[in-house]
């Protein structure tokens, strides 16, 4: 007790060299990581800013109402490319979303044998295959056999990009549902399929939905597979067997052209595309934050699956 009542030596709070060094390291790391953050933010906002300004400059109401045409005609717009992007993404979603989700459910619930492991390896490598290869395969299979470029072929190429992303996220999201809900279902006398479809998959539905949205965000920005499939034209497609421009391919075609009017429209298309992407990602964020359960971990997980490599790993580390 006597020791406790002793007055504290005033130096106690100042003299620990080891502690001071650690505090110094702490400060140092704070500034170093902050600097890295700035280094990353500058180019990101630089890109957003540049696209935004140039897009706004070229913007006219004609953009939404007029199709393409001669670069010397001042009354041209992006309607054809917007319709093309709309068609290919609807077709891709029509095939890609149900097939992706069903594949994911299959892998999680029945994916135990040899065949399933092959499927899993296949899906993993499909995520990593450069999309231009998907494009050329669809070109060989569909465009050549049908004899023309078409919106349909473009949609199918994009569906091939969607399926593995959605299948992977679906599988992961179902797996993230804690085992205790499965067991609660079984203990109530429900069969495995009832437990899966009435309890577990609904619990994973937000995660699955955002996997779908991110896959969608990913395909509306794809260019390479569309070069071989939907190709390019200056008029609005009449049906899904027509060749058509899309926003991404239009950015490429107009961007490298020597005509100033086309360059301007390319910037507008870039702005539209960027806004669509941000919109989808924003919706995904909203879906998650409502759930309240570790949104960042899951988003990082999905981003990692969807975009592979660097970005995903960075944000996973932040967590």
């Amino acid at each position: 007790m006597a020791e406790r009542n002793q007055k504290i030596n005033p130096e106690f709070f100042q003299s620990d060299r080891n502690l001071r060094f650690r505090l110094f390291k702490d400060k140092l790391m704070f500034y170093v990581t902050g600097l890295c953050l700035l280094l990353i933010l500058v180019p990101i906002f630089g890109i957003l800013f540049e696209v935004f300004i140039n897009g706004i400059i070229g913007f006219t109401p004609d953009v939404f109402t007029k199709a393409g045409g001669s670069p010397l005609d001042p009354n041209t717009g992006l309607l054809h490319a917007m319709m093309g992007t709309f068609y290919v993404s609807v077709i891709a979603s029509f095939f890609g979303i149900p097939l992706g989700i069903i594949t994911g459910i299959y892998l999680e619930y029945y994916g135990k044998g040899f065949f399933s492991n092959i499927l899993r390896v296949g899906i993993d490598s499909m995520v990593a295959i450069p999309t231009i290869i998907t494009g050329i395969v669809v070109f060989a299979l569909i465009v050549l056999s049908m004899g023309s470029f078409s919106v349909l072929a473009g949609g199918i190429a994009l569906a091939f990009i969607m399926i593995p992303i959605i299948a992977k996220t679906t599988e992961e999201m179902i797996r993230l549902v804690p085992q205790l809900y499965d067991e609660a279902g079984y203990a109530l006398g429900l069969s495995e399929s009832q437990t899966a479809f009435s309890i577990v998959i609904p619990l994973a539905s937000r995660g699955i939905a955002s996997g779908v949205l991110l896959a969608f965000a990913r395909i509306i920005g794809e260019t390479a597979p569309l070069l071989f499939t939907a190709f390019f034209s200056q008029s609005v497609p009449n049906n899904i067997l027509d060749v058509s421009a899309t926003l991404t391919v239009l950015i490429y075609q107009y961007g490298i052209s020597p005509f100033e009017a086309w360059n301007r429209l390319a910037w507008v298309a870039a702005l539209l595309l960027m806004l669509m992407n941000l919109g989808v990602i924003f919706i995904t964020r909203v879906i998650f934050s409502e759930n309240g359960v570790r949104p960042w971990t899951r988003i990082a997980e999905i981003i990692k699956i969807a975009f592979g490599g660097v970005i995903g790993e960075e944000s996973a580390k932040e967590e």
């Binding site: 804690p178 205790l180 809900y181 067991e183 609660a184 079984y186 203990a187 109530l188 006398g189 429900l190 069969s191 309890i199 609904p202 619990l203």
Partner: peptide
């Protein structure tokens, strides 16, 4: 087993009402 479990119910260690 599904019918067996209708006769023999279970309560778990961690309360697990269905969150949805």
């Amino acid at each position: 087993p599904v019918l067996v479990r209708r006769k023999i119910g279970m309560v778990f260690q961690k309360p697990n009402p269905f969150p949805n």
